[in-house]
Amino acid sequence: MAACSVRWALNRFRCLAGSPIRISAGLGSVTSQHVAGKQLACWEKVSRHESVWRNVLSVERGGRRRRRLLWAAVALSLFRGSDDEHDEAQRREDEMLLLLKKAKLSIHRGQLPAASIFLHQAVTLAHQTHNHQAIVYTYSLMANLAYIQGQLDHAEKLFKAAMSFMLSGGTPEDDNAVIEMSLKLATIYAEQNKVELAEHGFRFCTESLEAKLEKQNALPAEEKPDEQEALRKDTRLLLGLCFDSRARYRASNLHLNLAAQDYQKALNICRQEQGDTHPQTLVLMSDLATVLDLQGRHDDALVLVQQAVDVSRSAGHPDQHVLLGNLAGILLHKGQLDDSARFYQEALVLAQQAGDQEAIDQMQEGLKEVKKRRDKATQD
């Protein structure tokens, strides 16, 4: 805006300096001296404008101090409006950031309706200020909020809107942010039982990331700075998340062989990038063990989940009660009822301490099943 103001002012100077000055005859008599005086006055004005114009453009033509003072006066008048516009833009940006912070805090507190109001206000400001990044970020938050609230159709539209803004802004299709949103869309389609769309979405994500990693790995070592290495790691972890998400989808549809393959791929990536003791590594070990158990491979499942539980005890895993519950369930299927009951009880205590009501219900159901099988064994 400031540049436009400067260009407008300079063009205005050119117009005044180059246009002829005409003196119109009045209705009364005008002496030649009067006319001559007006003409002289006008030409003096033109001369002063030309002088200003020359002084702005050239440092060789006298009056350096006067030129600086004159330009300072002109600049003050030109940029005062620009400064006001800048202040207004900064005020809107600050207001938008505050709204986004309030929205995130509301989500954290579980105040979802309030978060929705803040986000709608923020996205309005983002559009008004043409802040491309803020538009994408706010739409993403709105989409996640809609997903949390179970508004899958609305979440789908918002994710698509965010992706549309990203792609129209020149973001490549294989950018990690685009693929992450594509993964969320695939997850939404999976929950909506839109099988073809879900499978296509998961396949797009995994194939795009694998191709991207192949290109990155083909680069010589000297062409891999720290930023490239960080991008490679982020890309691999996102690929692991894609395999994990697809595995859960396939397991829910009882495509157990495919689910086990995806879980194994996700586990391999997590181990390599995060380490054997990382919480996500242990969760994936437990999830894979659950699928193996469903396949009837109880011994393989028991070995894997026992490893996860042992590491979780020493590492202090935040969801240790979930791992213990899975261990108890596998032992139940193997018929080791006493061990199963013991681990269910331990998991129940930890779940109560964590305030995890869903896990509490599952542990109590597990203990009931143990009792039922014991009673049946006694009757037999």
Rank of each mutant, 00 (worst) to 15 (best):
115 A>Y: 00
84 D>K: 11
81 G>P: 12
106 S>V: 00
137 Y>M: 15
142 M>H: 11
51 S>I: 02
93 E>C: 04
137 Y>H: 15
63 G>S: 10
55 N>W: 05
70 L>V: 07
55 N>V: 03
113 P>D: 03
139 Y>A: 08
75 A>L: 08
90 Q>F: 09
118 F>C: 09
82 S>G: 01
83 D>T: 10
53 W>I: 05
78 L>M: 07
116 S>T: 02
134 A>R: 03
68 R>I: 14
145 L>T: 01
123 V>K: 03
88 E>W: 10
125 L>E: 03
114 A>Y: 09
94 D>V: 09
85 E>R: 08
54 R>M: 05
128 Q>P: 04
107 I>R: 07
66 R>S: 13
89 A>E: 10
104 K>F: 00
113 P>G: 05
138 T>L: 04
55 N>M: 14
66 R>N: 07
143 A>W: 01
99 L>F: 00
99 L>H: 02
124 T>L: 15
145 L>S: 05
100 L>E: 14
62 G>L: 06
112 L>H: 03
147 Y>F: 13
65 R>I: 14
108 H>E: 12
70 L>I: 08
95 E>M: 09
70 L>R: 03
126 A>K: 03
108 H>M: 07
115 A>I: 00
74 V>L: 14
135 I>H: 05
80 R>K: 05
70 L>D: 08
114 A>S: 14
62 G>I: 03
55 N>G: 10
105 L>V: 07
80 R>L: 13
91 R>V: 04
77 S>K: 11
121 Q>M: 10
56 V>G: 00
125 L>Q: 02
54 R>N: 08
68 R>A: 11
72 A>S: 13
67 R>N: 10
145 L>A: 04
